[in-house]
Structure formats: structure tokens, C-alpha cells
Design a protein around this nucleic acid. Structure first.
Lengths: 231, 231
DNA sequence: GTTACGAACTAACAGTCGTTCGTATGGCGT
DNA sequence: ACGCCATACGAACGACTGTTAGTTCGTAAC
């Protein structure tokens, strides 16, 4: 799961909030398979096989297949919300806020492709009441972008005639990254993040060309050349 | 299926290329269910129930579940390619070509949401060798946009430093439409198409603001007000 | 009125699904 | 050396999967 890359290893003292070490492995294997084949296209036998186990053994670590999906989707959505919110919190300038939000959004999709693919594709596979909870979180997330763009329009720094359409375009841009980005591909994570940070401002029709300094997170600005290799 | 909205009803003279009337119903019911719940999340019993039938009766009209998926995906991708190609063919101006291609792309996704949702989500559910064929068609499709943007950069009418990233952003924009657009929603198809036609030019960094006349297809240009209702 | 046929049905197939149960095993604390 | 306990296992569960076979029904053609 996205959170707790450093911690989350030891400490099983409280058996509820934290997951056991082996349970993390199960979730991780499921994450890969759900992302590749979909929830209904993956069997408990498949997940077990990835860990060199038999299906019944999984039930020593998780209580149900549906629980794995719920954990992944809820935690991912909360994590994404937190990350983008904190990226925006660093400044009061609306243009810069949008740039940083878009960058954080894109970076998250590049770093957690499995989680967001499941989040975007497996909503119908998630049973109630959790599906409604997820849908609400997703509306909250997109609403955050829409509101920010509306503010920019009122301030006169954005010129888009539909903040809603602009927000959706920016969000989709990031989702796309999770579908094709590979760390060993021709484009680096930073190149994509920077380019799409620029593009986001182009989508809302920023003043003239581009504006707003890049975020502090990530590497330094690349030199002003063409990005990535041609083939 | 997307093609033959006028024809395709009668004419069963050749039993191969054309589908029987009832077979079209089965494909249509499956189209809705596959789009809503996914291929593996839909059973033949579900499809039959939508037609007030029992599962075995479906085999009077289709030969297998997998065949339905194959038909949908192959025909949709070919149709999309054809539509966008012909939209681009009307002009030699690169800027206008991109605007028309983007508009056609978006319009298709607004008009055929079920087909393209399946096309984008169910690739892993499609068995070989058809999956490879689809993947090839999809590469051809995106390659078309990339090449067009590269040409614009060479001509100096686009300023993007990565035609690949710009193309993906534009394509994703359209895919997004298929996920949220509803004909009875606050935004009309034409409003979305026009706005995203503009946005596409913003993504590639067109000369200053916006350029290129809108496509001839669809309704007249709307007056220059804010688009859609606020809530 | 008989034949022919498309299309629907029930019954049944072999296989897989997620999950439960009872048991075996192996390492660790005492 | 003992027992504990987490963990893995095989067997089995009822439900469901896609699909086939055999049969019945209603209608149209002759």
C-alpha cells in the first residue's frame, strides 16, 4: 500500500490498525494482479500462487477477497487526497497552487500505478457501503480542482470558460500516466511531472504562455530542451 | 455496435459479415453490462436476464461470450480510427487537422461511451490473438496524433517540447468524457466538443491563444459565454 | 394439414469460485 | 523437553461459471 514505506514493518502490537507483515505481502501480490487482470479476473488461487501458497492459506492473513479490494481503494484515495492537499497548502498564489496540485497528482499516478488503476477501474467491483464512500471521496477530490480553477477565473488569472471541463482534463492527464508510464521508459518521472505541470496551466488558459514556478518537491528543473528521446 | 446505424437491420442474405437481428440485441445488452460491471463481472445469465431469456438461449445467436467481447472491441477500434481519419482528411492545415481530430475523438467518446469504456478497460480480458491485434490498432491510433503534433512542431505552429506527452493528454481528455458524460447533464455534447477542441490546441501550445476554425460537423459555434450551468 | 425451422426451454456437464474445517508442522519461549 | 501458536496444508462445501444436448413450442410455407 502507498503509506508507510519506512514503518509498517515491525509493530504488530495492535492487531487492528496495523497489518501483519505477511498480510502486507498478500495485499501487495493482490495489488499487482488486480491491476493487471482486474478484480473479477483474479482468483484467490492466483494471489496465493504469486506467493507460492495455496488459496486457503491466504485466510490466515486476510479475512476475504473483498476486504483486500476495500483496503486498497480506501487507503489509496485517502493517501492521494492527503498528498495533493499538502502540495497545495504551501502557497496562496492560485496559479502556483494549481501547478503544484497538478504536479502532485501526476507524480502520484506515476509512483502508484497499480493502486490508481484499481481505483479507477474496479469501482463497480467494490461492494456497498464502501463503494459509496469511495465515490464521495472521488467527488471531493475533483471538486478540489474545480474550486481552485473557479477561484483562478474569478481572480482573472485563468481564462477557461468551463472550470469543470478543465479540471477533468487535468485529472485525466494524470490517470493516463498510470496507464503507460514505466520507470525504465524514455521519459523520466520528473520530465513528465514538469511537462504536465506546464500543460495544466495551458489547459486553464493561463496568462499568455506559462507561469508559476515549479514545485519544490522532486529534482531540479531540467534544461530547456526537447523532452525524452524520440524513439 | 457503432457502425451501421441506418442499415444493419434487414439483409441477412450473407450469414457471415452481417449479424442477425436478435444477435444485435444480445451484443447490445452485453455492451451495457460489460461497460457497467466489466467482462468478468458479467455472466451469460446476466446478459440473458436483460433480454428476459435463460443463459443457454443466447447460444442460438452468439457462439461464445468471448466472441461478443472480440466483436465489440475490434469493431469499435476500427470505427474510431475511420471516424478520426476522415475528420482529419478534410484539410491540409496542421492546426485545423489537430482541432478536427480532437473534436472527432471527443465526440466519439461522448456518443459511444459503452464501447470505448470496454475498449479501455477490458484489454486484459480479451484473449489472444485478438488482444495483440487491438493493441496494434491502439498504437496506430495514438501514433496518428503524435505524428500530427510532431509535424506541427516542425512547422513552428505548435510549441510543445514533447509531442508524445501532448498527444496522450489529448487522448486521455476524450477517454474521460466517456466516463462522466450524460446526454441529460448540464453540458451538451457540442459544448464539450468545442471546449476540448480549444483545449487540445492549448495543450500543444498553439500560437498565443487559440487558433483554427471549428469543424463543420456538429452544431454551430455557441455564443462566447461561460459554458454549462454552474451546478 | 403437414412439414420445416428458428428460438426458447430444462437438464446436465465439468470446472472454478470464495471460503471453512480439521490437521500437520515447525520454530520459539520457558 | 515441553507446550504454544502462527502458519501452511488437503479435503470438502455449496454456489456459480460457460457451454452442450435434447426437447418443445409457435409460426410460416407448401
Amino acid at each position: 500500500m502507498p503509506k508507510n514505506e519506512s514503518a509498517a514493518r515491525g509493530a504488530r502490537t495492535r492487531g487492528d490498525r496495523t497489518r501483519s507483515e505477511r498480510s502486507i505481502d498478500v495485499h501487495d501480490a493482490a495489488l499487482t494482479l488486480f491491476a493487471e487482470r482486474g478484480y473479477h479476473g483474479t482468483s484467490m488461487k492466483d494471489i496465493a500462487a504469486a506467493l507460492h501458497l495455496r488459496a486457503p492459506s491466504l485466510y490466515n492473513h486476510v479475512s476475504a477477497k473483498q476486504e483486500i479490494l476495500r483496503d486498497v481503494m480506501v487507503e489509496t484515495m485517502n493517501d492521494l487526497l492527503k498528498v495533493v492537499r499538502s502540495a497545495m497548502a504551501g502557497t496562496d498564489d492560485t496559479v502556483l497552487k494549481l501547478r503544484r496540485a497538478a504536479e502532485a497528482h501526476v507524480r502520484y499516478h506515476a509512483r502508484h500505478p497499480r493502486e490508481v488503476r484499481i481505483g479507477n477501474h474496479e469501482i463497480p467491483a467494490l461492494e456497498e457501503p464502501h463503494r459509496s464512500a469511495i465515490t464521495k471521496l472521488r467527488r471531493e477530490y475533483s471538486r478540489m480542482f474545480v474550486a481552485l480553477i473557479e477561484r483562478g477565473v474569478e481572480e482573472g488569472v485563468f481564462t477557461t470558460r468551463s472550470p469543470l471541463l478543465s479540471a477533468y482534463a487535468i485529472l485525466q492527464m494524470g490517470i493516463g500516466v498510470s496507464m503507460w508510464y514505466r520507470p525504465d521508459g524514455p521519459l523520466s518521472e520528473d520530465e513528465i511531472v514538469f511537462h504536465y505541470g506546464d500543460t495544466a496551466l495551458g489547459v486553464v488558459g493561463g496568462v499568455s504562455g506559462r507561469a508559476g514556478a515549479p514545485a519544490t518537491e522532486g529534482a531540479k528543473r531540467p534544461p530547456k530542451r526537447a523532452v525524452g528521446s524520440k524513439k
